[in-house]
Structure formats: C-alpha cells, structure tokens
Design a protein around this nucleic acid. Structure first.
Lengths: 224, 224
DNA sequence: TCGGTCTTCCAGAAAACACTGGAGGACAGC
DNA sequence: GCTGTCCTCCAGTGTTTTCTGGAAGACCGA
C-alpha cells in the first residue's frame, strides 16, 4: 500500500471497522462473546447463562454472526455457536485490558466488592448527623415522592427507587451516599444499595428509617 | 482472582467494557481515533480532516473522552486532543486486524478499487441485453420515480438516486449492478456508481441512457 | 473592557437499536 | 404423516444515538 485509497473507500472501510465496534458495543454481546471464547454453546444454554430471553439471545447472536465474530454448527435440532477464531477472543481481552486501564470505574467496582466490608453495615444516626453537618455525605430518600413531601430528613434529596436508575448520573461517584426509607423492614433502601453498589457508588444504609430518626428528635423537614 | 464477582457486579463490569465498545462503534469516531493515534490535533483540524462539522466533531470527541480513550490539553483558545495511551492505539489496530480477517467486504472494497478496471467502462446495450436474458444482472433506474413510471428499460427496478443510500440493503453484493439514467451527460448514474462502489458493490454504467436504448428498439416498459 | 476565535453545551428531528411476544422453519422421534 | 423441541424471523414499542443549528463559555489581544 504505497498510496491511500480515495476518500469514498476510506469512509466505507471505517464503516466496516465500525461493524466490529458495534458488535462489541453492548454489554450483553460482550458477555456472550466471553462465554463463547470458553467454548461452544447452544443458544438456550447461552440464554440461561446470561439471564436473557431466548429470542433476545438469538438476536444478539445474529448480530455477532453478521459481524463474523461467531460461527455456527448445526447438530440435530440445536445450533452450536462458537467464536470465529482466536483473534476475536484476543480482541475481547484487549478490550478488557483497555477498559481496566482506562476506566477507573472498573477498579472501583472491584474494590467496592472485595474491600470495604464495613460499608455493608448501616450507618448510625449519630454518625450521619455528624457527616451531614460536615457536608461530606449525600442522603437520598428512596420512598415515593409524596412520602418525602410529607416528612423527610433535613438535607436529604428525594430519589424514589423507581427513578434511581435514571438519576444515577446526578449522584457523585466519590462521596458517600446514604439511603433510607420507611424503617428497618422496608425493602426500598436495600434495593437502592444493591443498584448503587453494582454501579460503583459507595453507598450505605441508615440504621432503621425515618420514623426512628424523627423519634430521636433529629432534624426533619417537609415539602419539596 | 480466585472467585467470580457476584452477578450484579459482573453485569456492571460488562457494561464498563461496553463503554469502550460503544466508543468504537461509529465510523466517525474510528476515523478520529486513527488520526489521533498519529499525534495531537485540534478540534478544528480534525473536523476538516474528516469532513465533519465542528459541532459534530466536538461531540464525538466528548464521547471518546468520557470513555477515557482520549485526553485533552488546552493551549490558549484551542484544545488539543490526543490518544490516552498506546494501548488505545493497540486496540484500534487489533480492531482493524479482526475486521480485515473477518470481513470479506473489506477485501472486496480494496479489490474493487485496485483491480477490475474494466468495470469502470460502461457496459454496451448489447451486452446488457444478453445479461438481462440470462438474469445475471440487476438493472437500476436512478432517475426520479415519475420518469421511471413513464418509460423504463424492461426488467429494471426504480431506485431514484436520492433513495439509493437507504435501499442499499436490497441490492445483492455479488451480482453485477448496472445503473442508467437520462443519457450520456446525465450525472445521476455516475453518482450512483460512486456510492455503490464505495460500499463494495460491483457496479457499472450502461452506455448512454434510456433514450438511446429506446431508439435502438430494445425492450422497454412503463408503469410501476 | 470589548470584540474575535475556538470550543462546548443545548434542544429538536431523524434514524438506529434493544427488547418483547407471536408466528414460522428445520429437525428428531414416533 | 404428526408432534414436540429448538431456533429464527417479524412487527411493534420504547429508548438511545446521531446530526444540525443556535447560544453560551473560555480565552486572547488590543
């Protein structure tokens, strides 16, 4: 190649490269490829392994197939998928390496799970009060909006559990997040924690819930 | 790592990997990354090099930046972008390698341009007639739809130039495609050829155009 | 402080994509 | 032939991405 191809071809070439990129632009497909790099599997086994529906799995596999990253083999009524060649798996690990090197979030995810087990304990009212006055915490009220409007911990923001996923981007990645809800048996806060931690946030639960905070005579507020 | 992280984290990890994948899921961004792997450049210089608008270029660069694939440096009023590290460029070449290895289209693109110069000559009416009867050709009429309805070569399908891009998927990748329009000085067919060839199709032009075909007493039709 | 330049942010339209459920195709066993 | 299994295709819905102009922000030089 002693000369560049003309512009029209260059664009189309890049589009071909992008086909590969698009194929690995989805977490589900990456999961599938990782599994396939371990060995051949049927559609159904991939579906159960990833927790996706069979239809959806099949469609993702079609995408990978048209990008020529995987190949198929029919055996009776079922179809076995496998990675098209070792280079594909090489690309996957390269991708993972870049992700680990470049994305701090990945490190944080691992650290959050493997270390800091004390973060799994609820935070006491007293400690939260201290942190609130030092402003080194974000307190979120994960109950439905109308309950928040009625009464909430002073300084807390309302993020109903249903909206949490959508509002993740509003939350700080480095500060501690404390979630609370109706009381010690309420499931909203634990669910919020699970989501937050899976996304790499540092999150803890307040001991008990709002009624106990209020009963302790600690500062509350109402309205939005 | 002697144990897998729990499912919630695994999913989130894959999503982090997919962030990198998404970043390279667009031909434009791949082009930008390739340029940046050669060295630092300003937004404007990237915009002119790729033929994109500055706004659009900037937005693609933001995507790359949030994926941590590129970094910036301010110098007075302009901002210099560069690849975040060599591993990123390594990933790009790995991507290109897989694309070349796996995508036949890429090979075809190169071949279409570097070889088969005879395909650049128009096809004669006589040859087209023969191929039409052997059905080993797809003839497309790239004039506006109403002209097609009035009269067209029998066996041709109507794909007005404006719609060609959208309808590329309807065309065969292996068969020969012959385009015609109003006559030897009409620009529609040449433009269609440029697009088709850039996308890897085998495409030729009919000598002259419809009037000459008709004048030669060859088979025509009308209606849709 | 005031233009001028370079870049980013924002809002809206068009296109592409992911997921779902139901219909259809290929195969094995009876 | 018929039935059941496994997979793929199709159509519809809701979300995300891409691109475009216009406005705003950061910086330089006068």
């Amino acid at each position: 190649m002693n000369q560049l191809p003309p512009a029209g071809v260059r664009g189309a070439l890049h589009e071909q490269f992008a086909r590969i990129g698009k194929a690995v632009a989805s977490a589900k497909r990456i999961e599938l490829l990782e599994l396939l790099c371990q060995g051949e599997r049927t559609v159904e086994s991939l579906a159960t392994a990833t927790g996706m529906g069979v239809t959806n799995t099949s469609q993702h596999l079609q995408v990978l197939k048209t990008a020529r990253l995987v190949e198929t083999r029919r055996a009776g009524t079922r179809i076995h998928y496998r990675a098209a060649d070792e280079r594909v798996c090489g690309l996957m690990s390269e991708l993972g390496a870049v992700a680990r090197a470049r994305l701090v979030e990945v490190e944080r995810l691992v650290r959050n799970y493997l270390e800091a087990p004390e973060d799994l304990e609820p935070i006491t009212r007293k400690e939260l009060l201290g942190r609130l006055s030092r402003r080194d915490v974000v307190v979120i009220d994960v109950r439905p909006m109308d309950e928040y409007k009625a009464t909430h911990i002073r300084g807390a923001v309302s993020i109903p559990l249903a909206e949490l996923k959508r509002r993740l981007r509003d939350l700080p990645k480095n500060a501690l997040i404390v979630a609370y809800c109706r009381g010690p048996y309420c499931v909203l806060a634990p669910q919020a924690l699970a989501l937050l931690r899976a996304r790499g946030f540092r999150a803890r639960r307040l001991e008990d819930g709002l009624p106990e905070w209020r009963a302790a005579g600690l500062p509350i507020a109402s309205g939005s």
